[in-house]
Design a protein around this nucleic acid. Structure first.
Lengths: 228, 228
DNA sequence: CGATGCGTTGACATGCCTCAACCTGAGTGG
DNA sequence: CCACTCAGGTTGAGGCATGTCAACGCATCG
């Protein structure tokens, strides 16, 4: 997706290291309640956004009124690196959220001044492309259960590298968001969730709390070989 | 998609402007018969590829044996800009094809040396990301007819900016390729083609030759407002 | 206490997949 | 020239997964 994870990169020890994250140093925290829009599709893309706390949903209303959710951003994720002059999506807070903004011009300047930073920058863009294509290829050919497994796996990996049995994860977004993200309906998401539970792949503590019981099977359903 | 169109960009007037296309200047032509692989998924990604004549199919075999066709490349398209160290897809000639190869190292050197990073390279990567996300968002939420309409529209735009009534386009790839590209089966592609014909959206001269009869309706089906 | 929003489940309709048959055109050999 | 084969394309019949519509459970909130 267009979301860039900073997890391992951001926590580099030396302070002068220039990184995309350093653009947000010293910027004020901005708080948003659930449902509040952080920017709107079509607005001039003035700045980048870094999520500090909470979760943000990136979406877009299609021609015919259907909603497509492009993805979800959690703490550390940066949004807007690959936007053109106007925002192509609307970003909304899913939960109580804290973000920082940095002008895109600052990013541009930084990349101009520091040629050694370019490979890192290009790599991140490339990762985004690969992720988007991967997502496209696989989702298009997957059924509902497999899509949901893939989504749960992605949510789990947001927390840890590879999920182990017993990992508990929180789904702060409502079912409708998951459905519009996977190209399904709310009912189908529910049924697939129930099916995964019946197969002992996951356990449900509540609608928003899932425990991974069989990571290997989750991997397999999501369409990844058990190896990596 | 990961495919970068060079059509309008390549013909900039001033010669010193470094472009991705210039990397291929002076490289020898390489010919490939239908079905021949130009590179394989998993091989070290040594070089970029520019299609000169014919059509190339980019695909990948999924874990469970299903085939996913990521896209098709025609004359002028460049492949490999966003690859990591190994090719993530296999590229095969659909028709009799001519290509040129350029080492990726040359591209990397160009990016490092360029005083201005934006025009040549970053914009194109950004376009790719946007295209992939667009594709993902829309295809996921579309039914078979709409997906096929979208595909036909894309093929038409490969020839001209906006298709007009009477535009004849050639589909050099077999139905199976189209199906695996859209996440459908061969039979469903046939039926959707027949349905579009019945609705007077297109006319079929033969399996590989389609005439656009109602561009406005094609646009609408593909999920784009009639405006642009 | 009722109202509301969200999640879940059931009944039914529909769209796509599966399997099968048939058609067409291009080779190929008689 | 015809008969045959073969691959790709098209069409039909039936099954299954998902969408649609509806009902209900449950928690929150006024």
């Amino acid at each position: 997706m267009y979301v860039l994870k900073s997890a391992h990169l951001a926590t580099s020890p030396e302070p002068p290291e220039p990184s995309v994250e350093s653009l947000f140093d010293g910027r004020p925290l901005e708080l948003a309640p659930p449902g509040r829009a952080l920017f709107w599709e079509g607005d001039p893309a003035r700045d980048l956004l870094q999520v500090v706390r909470g979760m943000v949903r990136v979406q877009r209303i299609l021609f015919d009124g259907r909603r497509a959710v492009a993805g979800f951003l959690g703490p550390g994720d940066v949004l807007g690196l690959c936007f053109s002059d106007t925002y192509l999506f609307t970003a909304e807070a899913v939960t109580e959220t804290a973000v920082r903004r940095a002008p895109r011009a600052a990013l541009q300047g930084m990349v101009q001044r520091l040629p050694e930073l370019r490979p890192a920058f290009v790599d991140r863009m490339r990762d985004e492309i690969c992720a988007a294509q991967e997502q496209l290829l696989i989702l298009l050919h997957q059924c509902a259960d497999e899509r949901l497994a893939r989504f749960l796996l992605a949510m789990a990996r947001r927390l840890v590298g590879e999920p182990r049995a017993g990992l508990e994860l929180t789904l702060p977004m409502p079912r409708a968001d998951i459905a519009d993200h996977l190209g399904l309906t709310v009912e189908t998401v529910c049924r697939s969730m129930t099916k995964l539970r019946a197969q002992k792949v996951i356990r449900l503590l509540g609608p928003a709390h899932v425990v991974v019981e069989n990571p290997a099977r989750l991997l397999a359903l999501a369409g990844e070989p058990p190896g990596p």
